[in-house]
Simulated scan of single mutants.
Amino acid sequence: MELIIEQFSKCTVRHYELLLEAKPSKSMIDLYLPQSHCVEAKDGIRIIGVIILKLKEPNILEIVSIAVKEDIRGNGIGSLLIEYALEFAENYGVNSIEISVGSTNFKALYLYQKYGFRMKYIVRDFFTKQYDQKIMYNNIELKDLVRLEKNCVETH
């Protein structure tokens, strides 16, 4: 499988399909896309993953969204997208990278911690207050948001 990772500027239906798996609100997605650095992973012509990066402050990069096509998960695409974000952060000289994830998304929590992200804080009942419909993830009602951070500046 030849994998291509490249920036995109226009969000297509295929991009939205993936992004809506990570954030179940198109209007929310449309709010952050214009100010973001959007990257897709393709195997040939098929889009199999996306990562959306946004400089929150001059020294903080936020991974606003990351999603991999469900039937492709577990094959390293998420890792490649995280590595892209780490390289992007290094190129822009940011001090830290932040990402939010649902508390029941155990595989994502594992992946981010594998790359050195540490828990920063938890927003209790974020998903129950933010969304009208109940969200189930791993057969558990998703309620809390976990914010993680990776320090990009070496300290001794």
Rank of each mutant, 00 (worst) to 15 (best):
E2Q: 14
E6P: 02
Q7F: 07
F8Q: 12
S9G: 05
S9K: 08
C11N: 06
L20Y: 02
A22W: 03
K23F: 05
S25E: 08
S27F: 06
I29C: 04
I29V: 12
I29D: 03
D30I: 09
L31W: 00
L33W: 00
P34W: 08
P34G: 14
Q35F: 07
S36F: 07
H37W: 01
C38W: 00
V39E: 02
V39H: 03
E40D: 13
E40T: 12
A41P: 03
A41C: 05
A41N: 07
K42S: 09
K42V: 06
R46Q: 10
R46I: 04
G49H: 02
V50S: 14
V50C: 15
I51V: 04
K54N: 12
N59H: 10
N59Q: 12
N59F: 08
N59G: 09
I60P: 00
I63C: 00
S65N: 13
I66V: 09
E70P: 01
R73P: 02
I77Q: 03
I77G: 09
I82A: 02
I82D: 03
N91C: 13
N91E: 13
G93W: 08
V94D: 12
S96G: 12
I99W: 06
S100W: 02
G102Q: 09
S103L: 02
S103D: 08
T104R: 08
K107Y: 10
K107E: 14
A108Q: 09
A108E: 07
L111W: 01
K114E: 10
Y115M: 09
G116F: 11
F117K: 09
F117W: 06
M119E: 11
D125M: 09
F126G: 14
F126M: 13
F127A: 06
F127Y: 15
T128C: 01
Y137K: 14
N139Y: 08
N139Q: 10
N139V: 03
N139L: 08
I140W: 04
I140Q: 14
L142K: 01
L142R: 01
L145C: 09
V146I: 15
E149I: 13
K150P: 07
K150Y: 10
C152H: 05
C152G: 12
V153Q: 13
V153K: 15
E154I: 14
T155I: 15
T155L: 15
H156M: 15
H156E: 15
